[in-house]
């Protein structure tokens, strides 16, 4: 229960005990689910029970369509949405949705650390702060793969296919460039939509494809590694400020520990998920040769990157382009 729990909005100091409700949309076994559990364990231990963390996975409490609004108004204290879902509020976050932003997960820590150019733009983002959202950390999931009912080996195979996307202008732009028709849709609806044929395909990390059983209703999975899925661990800013200083410190430390743990397991969880999918044999896994993958890349890089330079900042785009070459 949440009776007698912390004060969700403003006031502060409503007693010594606080409850943090953390709502997310994936299963407890995803990297995000496991990191949430870690956060709960660490924080409850370090605060000796002064803070209780209640985790609500699987869109149980809030889904993609209402969690952002819920964290802003204090309906929940913490959420961990994909970064793209915050891009309507903070355009700068579109940077994380750029296609082929990394080619390998090893490049990630450098890209989004607290002190990197990209990282600073997120941790200290003014638009988010103005909307009562405090960025606590960035959690990794992994690289995107394409799932579909039609074999996808080159960009042209996507022509005319209806692809579910997370609502982000950058993501929509590169899919359209490849020729796909995009439909934004809440995560919890995707399985049913694939099953009922509302959309032909979607893209996700192995762990999400596995935990949401997308592979059961899709014929092909193309290893495209075409983007990186980052979650923004976001907290209601007023709630954070209502915590006593020592508890604020404990929360920050618990987040950091959970983030480190998250980075450690993300790759493993994805590899395990891939094994489950392969063993199920319900979908064929298509490996792309490096030329084939390059064809996807050449169609959208750097054109899409430059298209969003105004939103993201020309300096950041230049730095990213310099890194790549």
């Amino acid at each position: 229960g949440v009776r007698g729990a912390g004060q969700g909005g403003g006031g502060g100091g409503g007693g010594d005990e606080f409850t943090i409700r953390l709502s997310h949309v994936v299963t407890a076994d995803d990297p995000k689910g496991k990191a949430s559990q870690k956060f709960k364990e660490v924080l409850e231990k370090s605060t000796e029970g002064r803070i209780t963390v209640e985790i609500y996975p699987n869109s149980e409490l809030y889904g993609d369509e209402d969690e952002i609004q819920a964290v802003q108004s204090g309906g929940v204290e913490m959420i961990a949405p994909a970064s793209s879902k915050l891009t309507d509020i903070a355009r700068q976050l579109l940077v994380l949705d750029l296609p082929f932003i990394v080619d390998d997960t090893s490049e990630v820590p450098d890209l989004i650390s607290r002190d990197s150019t990209v990282g600073k733009g997120i941790y200290t983002n003014k638009d988010l702060a103005d909307n009562n959202i405090k960025v606590m950390g960035l959690w990794d999931n992994g690289l995107y793969q394409i799932t579909s009912n039609k074999a996808v080996r080159k960009p042209d195979d996507l022509r005319g296919q209806r692809i579910r996307i997370t609502p982000s202008d950058a993501i929509q732009a590169y899919w359209n460039k490849w020729g796909a028709k995009t439909t934004p849709m809440a995560f919890a609806e995707v399985f049913t939509a694939l099953q009922q044929g509302v959309v032909d395909g979607e893209f996700n990390t192995y762990s999400n494809i596995e935990s949401q059983r997308f592979y059961e209703v899709q014929k092909y999975i193309t290893i495209s590694d075409h983007g990186y899925l980052t979650y923004v661990l976001a907290m209601n800013n007023k709630f954070f400020n209502s915590l006593p200083d020592d508890l604020q410190q404990a929360v920050v430390e618990a987040v950091d520990e959970a983030s480190a743990y998250n980075r450690e397991i993300a790759d493993t969880v994805n590899q395990e998920a891939r094994k489950v999918i392969e063993e199920a044999g319900t979908s064929e896994i298509i490996e792309l040769s490096s030329e084939d993958r390059q064809a996807f890349k050449d169609a959208v890089v750097p054109s899409i990157w430059n298209q969003f330079a105004d939103d993201i900042g020309q300096d950041i785009i230049d730095e990213l382009l310099a890194r790549k070459s």
């Binding site: 229960g1 949440v2 009776r3 729990a5 912390g6 004060q7 969700g8 909005g9 889904g63 369509e65 209402d66 609004q69 819920a70 108004s73 204090g74 309906g75 609806e189 049913t192 939509a193 009922q196 509302v198």
Partner: peptide, 22 residues
């Protein structure tokens, strides 16, 4: 009576309950 949720969350959830294409 039993939770600290902001009350507007109720109307928000009522609205979103039928926000589903199927």
């Amino acid at each position: 009576y039993y939770t600290t949720l902001p009350m507007t969350q109720i109307s928000d959830t009522l609205f979103n309950g039928i926000n589903s294409f199927p």
